[in-house]
Structures are given as C-alpha cells and as structure tokens.
Amino acid sequence: MHTQTDTPLPTKLPNIKASSKNRRIQDTLIKGLLLAIALLSASFIILIAVFVTTRGIIPFITDNNQLGRVDVVGFLTGRVWLGGATFISTAYGAGYLIVNTLYVVFLSLLVSFPVGVLTALFIAKIAPAALSHAMRTIVELLASIPSIVYGLVAAGVFLPWIHSLARAMGTQSSGGNSTFAVVIVLAMMSLPTITAVSEVAIRSVDKNLEHASLALGASPTQTHFKVVLAAAKSGIFAGAILAVGRALGEATAVSLVAGSSRSGPNLGLFDITATITSTMLEGMKETSGIDYDIRFSLGVLLMAVILITNFLLNFIKRKVGKIHV
C-alpha cells in the first residue's frame, strides 16, 4: 500500500485546498445519488405492498358484481377453499392454508436446519482447505438453482419414491404428491441459505475462544459443538430466519408436488396438501373476476404471515442471542 507520510506535504497542500471545495460538492452529489437509488428500491416494496393490498381487499369491500362480499372471518378461519361453484360462490376459506404453510415450513426447517448447520461446521472448521473451497462452491451453486428446477426434479424423481415409501409404510399416497414431498423440496431449497449464513457465522467466532477451549483440555469435537456453535448461534439463527422466509414464499416448486388440496388442514405426511403460495399460483392465468382477485387477498395474507413470523423469530433470536456461554 502506498503511504504519503514520508513525502513533503507543503508542496502538495495548495492542490488539496483548491480541490477541497470540489470534493465536498462531489461528496454531496454522490450522497444524494445514493439516497435516490435507495429510495427507489425502497419504493418498489411500497409499490408492491400497495398494489397487492388494493387488489386484495376488493373481494372484502365490494359486492363482487352482485355475488356479495367475502366474509373476512370466514376467509381467515375457513377449512374449505371454496364452498360452492367458481364465479358464483364467495365462500372462500384460507385458514387451513395458513396452518398447512406454517406446518410444512416448520417440518422443512426441522430437516434443513441440522443438516445445514453441520455442513457449515464441516466446511468452516473440519474440511481441508481444498475440500472446503469445493464444498462452498457447491453450496453457492445450489443456492442459484431456480425453484422450477427443484420442482421438476422433485416431481420427476422424488414423487415415485415417496409413493413407494408410503406403500412400504402401509399407507396410500396420491402418486407421491404430499406434505412429505413439499417438506423435502423446501428443505433442499433452504439448505444452501442456512449453510452459507451459518458458515460465515462460524468463521467469525473469535479464535481465542477456541484456543482457550482446546487449552483447557477439550477435544476438537467438544470445542466445535459446545463452544463454536454456541458462540455462533445468533448468526446461525439469522440464517434460519432467511431460510424460513424463502420457504414461506416458495410457490413454483411447491405447487408441482403438493397435490393442491381444497380442504384441510392437511397434517398427514403422505396426504396431499396446499400452501398459500401454491393456491395463489394455481389457475392464476386462466381465471378472472373474484376468483382472480381472491388470489391477491392470499398475497396480503402471505405478506402478513411472513411479517409476523419474521417478527416472532427476530424476537426469539434476540432472546437466544443474549445468553452467553
């Protein structure tokens, strides 16, 4: 790096003074530009939220071309998606979708969290440098695979397996379309997020903590599990929150393997299911009127569910993060 400490300053001073005003203007300009860009990207969120909400409340506040209003309470607690004929009935219910969505996301986290964290621990602490580098590249690649590809692989490869598995366990599945399939797909998709974020968290744990643990006679395994993971748990939890966000919002892959149940809640592992997103996606291109607008209502519901879940998880994270070892 080049330093100026040895060069004689006086000869350069006038230059700096002359340009200092220009620089200040430059700084102000850049600051303004960055602010504008930040505002622009923030305004997209507002634009989306406003658009989805204005569309989404139409079924609840208008009479939907003489069909009558959709009952908000019925919508939030309903156990049947539509209790009547499409375009004629307004008896929409999404309560079971909320339960299904949270259920599959929770189960997928149950799979992806331990696998992701242990993978991260391996990459960060145990694997030799070359392997660690290769593994990290693989995880990054996994994160960049589009969801439709995950969905197609799951529909083509996993569904027959899951169907056979269900038969082996003495139950009958609908061609493998099931909660189980959705959980596997979501776990696969959230795995790279958890791994990548956890790895960074594990790497940033103070080396002195580790050395102290080893010096006190703990084995490397004891150190990794009881010291490193414990110290990194706040970061690991942040990874889990991101993964939950991704899993909650995933539509394409889920709708390919869910089977789209129209009533619920669907808690059986080998029963067909439906989530908020998969129901939104389905028929979107071919429907109209209230059946179209109600999908925006689901969008509002989804945003609310994501916000509340994130808020709760962040609250838990603060609680968990405060406990030190």
């Binding site: 998606w81 009547g84 061609g175």
Partner: peptide, 23 residues
C-alpha cells in the same frame, strides 16, 4: 365447483395427471 367432489382429491395440470398415473 370443487365442493361437490369426493373429499381428498388432488388438483393437477395435464402433465401432473399423466405423471401421477404412471406412479
């Protein structure tokens, strides 16, 4: 009207139904 169908039916597109029948 989905409500008059037997309970527990799966909703799929054309390809989804074809695939399901192979499994």
């Amino acid at each position: 009207n989905d409500a008059v169908l037997a309970s527990g039916f799966a909703t799929q597109n054309n390809l989804g139904i074809m695939n399901a029948m192979t499994v």
